[in-house]
Simulated scan of single mutants.
Amino acid sequence: MSKIPLSNDAAEIDHLRRAYTLMFVSYIAAAIIFVYGIRHIYDQQTLLAVILISSALAFLLNIVVFHLTGRIDRACLVQSVLVSMFVLVLVYQGGYHNTALYWVYPFPIIQFALLGARRGALLNLSLTLLLALFLKFPEWTIAKYRPEETSRFISSMLTVICVGWISEYFRARSHHKMTALQRDQQTLAYTDSLTGLLNRRYIDVDLPAQLLDNPDDYFPMTVVMLDIDHFKEVNDSFGHDAGDGVLRAVSQLLRTGTRAEDLVARYGGEEFIFFMPHTQLNDGLKRAESLRQQLAQHAFALGSVARHITASFGVATCHSPSNLKSTIQMADKNLYEAKRAGRNCVR
């Protein structure tokens, strides 16, 4: 319940990397292939022109579907299959004056960028195996390649694949480690060191962005603020270590007394705040009352005796991200109404 829904900037960057690779193949590479296809119509190389133009149109169709659906994984997989088919057909036909082999070298790097290290390696090695069979059995292809040309091509392809795999594998590992480091730093920045709950910084900085990005996950959302009654007397009578123990015990009660999706934070001093997604005001009041009763019934070990400690609660409901600040202010106002009403109550 005090788990931080961390922002995922690293994942967004990786998504953009794949999307830009996909768009490069779909737009830039397709445009180049299309231009060569048109040119070969005038050269009366009909089969080569059909291969180039149809491949370019297939690449463009895939990117259009991606823009309509936003499904990056499917689009990258489809593009990789289209690229592989284009390479196979081009090598089968031979290209312009049997130059098809020269056009194959960039595509393993593209496959790694689209699919990642493991799937990219599987597809690249499978494609290279098929190409090796084409070149091993010349009768399978229209093009006629020289034996010394084919052996050097396969060796070069395997080299490109190995270098591409190493690059993609360690890029991915670096990406995961940086993501983990970012999460650790963000968790540390947004965690109260005494209680282990979220802190005021998270409420002020990160929560508003989370609400804006995913409003359907939160609203309507009830905000509850509570303040431990007469907490100064605990510090004065039993010392600050005892007061810290009370704060940790209250934090644990809030953890166990709220739902997994609720966000619980220490707002400052002896004041706490928690957010209950998809909760209307009446339900929020009932849950706050239940927590008030649990807290009032709990015996805190202070010195050699057990004492009961109470808290006052203020409740308000938020319906949109723009109302978060005013809702917190309303919950705080209701909290002080509870204090003026005699404490140990919910308002």
Rank of each mutant, 00 (worst) to 15 (best):
R307L: 14
G303T: 09
A49K: 05
T128M: 15
M1A: 13
D283C: 06
L22T: 06
R71Q: 09
M276D: 06
P106C: 09
I109W: 10
T258M: 03
L60T: 14
D332M: 01
D244F: 02
S290A: 13
L207E: 08
L253R: 01
F272D: 12
V250Y: 01
E139L: 15
Q44F: 04
Y218H: 14
V346R: 04
A189G: 03
P106I: 02
L16M: 15
S54K: 06
R201V: 09
H319D: 15
I4L: 15
A56K: 03
E12M: 15
A75F: 07
D244Q: 00
A316P: 06
A189W: 01
V91C: 05
R39E: 00
Q93G: 08
M85F: 03
L90D: 05
Y36W: 06
M157Q: 13
T187N: 14
T317R: 11
N334I: 04
P147C: 13
I110D: 10
V25M: 13
T159K: 06
L22D: 01
K232A: 09
L90E: 00
A29N: 12
Y336F: 14
W140I: 14
Q44D: 14
Y218T: 05
V250P: 01
D283S: 15
V78W: 05
G120I: 06
A113I: 03
I63Q: 06
H308V: 14
V78H: 12
S26Q: 03
N124V: 02
Y145A: 13
D262Q: 10
V163K: 00
S193F: 01
P215S: 07
F300D: 00
A49R: 05
F274G: 07
L122P: 02
R200I: 02
G257P: 08
S193I: 07
L131D: 02
D192V: 01
R17T: 12
F313C: 04
V89G: 12
Y218I: 10
T179Q: 10
I63R: 07
E148G: 11
V264G: 02
A121Y: 05
R18C: 05
F86W: 08
L247N: 05
P220W: 05
G239P: 04
L122F: 13
D216C: 11
P106T: 04
G196R: 05
L285D: 09
L188A: 11
T21H: 08
L57R: 10
L101E: 02
P106L: 11
G245C: 04
Y169D: 07
V81N: 11
S54Q: 11
R74W: 12
F112T: 03
R119K: 15
V315M: 09
R146Y: 12
G95I: 00
A121F: 08
F24R: 15
E12P: 07
A296T: 02
Q329R: 13
S237D: 08
Q210P: 05
F219S: 10
F137R: 13
D206K: 09
R171L: 10
D206V: 11
E337M: 12
L302I: 03
L115E: 01
L254V: 05
L52Y: 05
A75M: 11
I53N: 07
R17I: 08
M221E: 03
R266D: 10
F24P: 03
Q280R: 11
L263I: 09
K177E: 09
N344C: 13
